[in-house]
Design a protein around this nucleic acid. Structure first.
Lengths: 195, 195
DNA sequence: ACGGTTGTATACATGCGAGTAAACATACGT
DNA sequence: ACGTATGTTTACTCGCATGTATACAACCGT
């Protein structure tokens, strides 16, 4: 039997879970629009028909994945405020499910149809960053600049950390913190006295 | 005449150019897949049919835009090496055509069908960053990390600069440079001797 | 005033991926 | 051994955005 890959026939709940992880992996490569159902089915080692026995549509499957990812993230990092240990928490979440993290921050945040799911997240991040920076940076474009840049820098740094093989998380947290500090320092430079 | 918007009837070449800029604006909002032809047509103040009198397909239109954007970028920044004035050059290019810049770095780099157009660009950026960092950072995951992160940080910083209203470009260049420096410093920290 | 160019309107063609249906196959619990 | 749950196969339907065809309208140079 040259088919050692997938053990067929899982109980419903497990199959569902397995489809979710497989789909997350598949979507994490090219996002929603550029990932076909057949691709997902193949990734799960299953026929396209089976997908529909567990999810009503491609969109519902995707939303389920995104919901789950957001929930887990909120669970680890906290919704409202970003404590001092937010970065280690973020790294933890990313390490726990790298595909979900990549999917969320590399693709989902840019996808029209699903921005309702990610907007609150992003907006919150920017707001928090902004309020943290407000102590050091006067109101104006440079505050906007830093407040927008820092959240994306953070998630990009985490993704780069994943891509580079997840070296020591404590060091990573330290360095990401330093990078963020670098930005806020840069933005807090002596007022743009020009020349 | 309740139609003050678009002056109709342009000579062919100008119409083509106008379509290109309008399409760039439209695509820059949600990328290739999530932007319909009707949206583009409306943005150009023209019927969908007219688009096809100038371009064979949506894909060809998109590739034309991307080609142009890449060319202009290369023209300003240089293909091979990143001189010291690369950042001001990048800011200049972004200011000259913000939509194209956003389109290129926020969407096109993540779109499956067009990665052939952007991959060389991205790959070059990472390589250059890497060689620049190699002086300060030993080979290993942290070098990978910084080499991947710095290019994306740079383009994200430029986009954030655009979004915040393009305050003084010289200051911006300075601050982006500082942010980059921050990353490379962070990555060059004393070897991960760990706790 | 005429011929070509540019644009409009409208209706249609087409393809592709999502989604459905129905018949068959086989593991698994009991 | 039997019935149910799970999965496969195959062959569909369907919607929708892309792409096309045709006839009409108006501007523009000469």
């Amino acid at each position: 039997m040259p088919q050692p890959a997938a053990r067929t026939r899982l109980p419903r709940a497990e199959r569902r879970a397995q489809i979710l992880t497989a789909a997350t992996r598949a979507f994490a490569r090219h996002g929603f629009a550029d990932t076909g159902l057949d691709e997902i089915a193949e990734e799960a080692g299953v026929t396209r028909v089976v997908l529909y026995r567990h999810f009503d549509s491609k969109a519902e499957l995707y939303r389920t994945i995104l919901d789950q990812a957001c929930s887990r993230l909120a669970e680890r990092v906290g919704t409202d405020d970003f404590e001092d240990d937010a970065i280690p928490a973020l790294l933890g979440a990313a390490a726990e499910d790298p595909d979900a993290f990549r999917l969320l921050f590399r693709f989902a945040t840019r996808e029209r149809e699903f921005q309702d799911l990610t907007d609150s997240l992003s907006a919150a991040a920017v707001t928090v960053a902004r309020s943290n920076l407000a102590k050091q940076i006067p109101d104006g474009p440079w505050l906007d600049w830093a407040a927008q840049l820092i959240p994306t820098l953070t998630t990009d740094a985490v993704i780069a950390w994943l891509d580079s093989g997840q070296p020591d998380p404590d060091t990573a947290a330290e360095r990401i913190r330093a990078a963020i500090h670098g930005i806020s320092q840069a933005a807090a430079q002596p007022p743009p006295s020009s020349s």
